[in-house]
């Protein structure tokens, strides 16, 4: 029924550290459809960060294919990957990764700047997005003048800037307290309800519970993949 957004086919990632070769991901096959709200879980070293980097087009697989929105990104050049990241992916990081000494507004504008969106259109959209995450009044504030939760909301607004088909969040609540975490996950849920595809990488069960599908990783392999209908039947 649903249209597929992400398809990994026999995806392998090998880390060559010189002396030894480490298999980061071992022949992963995975499909995520448009509009899904997915959590990728695993302990550190399980391969979830590696997968996150590949899904985010920050890294390329060693073997296999990664189709994002129908495009095979496995063999793209770094500049082509930049373009894909710019248009297709909205990142939300654990440590917010806002550019310091730069206003919230400018931070939200940044992906549009790289997409060569005109100054006026950029500003309008950035203000709309800040309004969407409830921070319109903080548009001119710099990251160090905002709380952790506010910073992450700015980051989410930034992730939405170019209307990417995929929102990729890497431990988005890792640096937040419980209240702020719930607020952020609530925001993701809202985005999901509005039709966005959201993939959250986390190691916290209570965070994963917000999602509809949990994919568990261990030693570079998918060990479980459960889709839940509506309310949580926690594992």
């Amino acid at each position: 029924m649903a249209e597929e957004l992400i398809r990994l086919k026999d995806l392998v990632k090998i880390y060559d550290t010189g002396a030894i070769k480490v298999l980061g991901l071992k022949r992963i096959n995975l499909t995520i459809n448009r509009g899904e709200f997915v959590a990728i879980m695993g302990k550190s070293g399980s391969g979830k960060s590696t997968l996150m980097n590949i899904l985010g087009c920050l890294d390329r697989p060693s073997m296999g294919h990664y189709y994002l929105d129908g495009i095979d990104v496995a063999s793209m050049t770094p500049n082509q990957l930049s373009e894909i990241r710019n248009k297709k992916i909205g990142f939300v990081f654990q440590s917010f990764n806002l550019i310091s000494r730069t206003s919230a507004l400018k931070n939200v504008e940044l992906p549009m700047t790289y997409a060569r969106v005109g100054k006026k259109a950029r500003r309008e959209r950035a203000l709309k997005l800040l309004d969407r995450v409830g921070l319109l009044s903080r548009a001119q504030h710099q990251p160090n003048e905002l709380s952790g939760g506010q910073r992450q909301r700015v980051a989410i607004a930034r992730a939405l800037a170019n209307e990417p088909p995929l929102i990729l969040a890497d431990e988005p609540t890792g640096n937040l307290d419980t209240a702020a975490s719930e607020e952020i996950m609530g925001l993701f849920s809202d985005l999901h309800k509005e039709g966005a595809t959201v993939v959250v990488v986390t190691h916290e069960e209570n965070i994963a519970e917000f999602t509809d599908r949990i994919i568990r990783f261990q030693d570079g392999l998918v060990i479980s993949d459960e889709t839940r209908g509506g309310e949580g039947s926690a594992v």
Partner: peptide
């Protein structure tokens, strides 16, 4: 370096 990383993750190309 980190700022450069952020910019790149947001779509900055080598040339940018």
């Amino acid at each position: 370096t980190r700022e450069i990383g952020i910019r790149k993750s947001l779509g900055a190309k080598t040339r940018d």
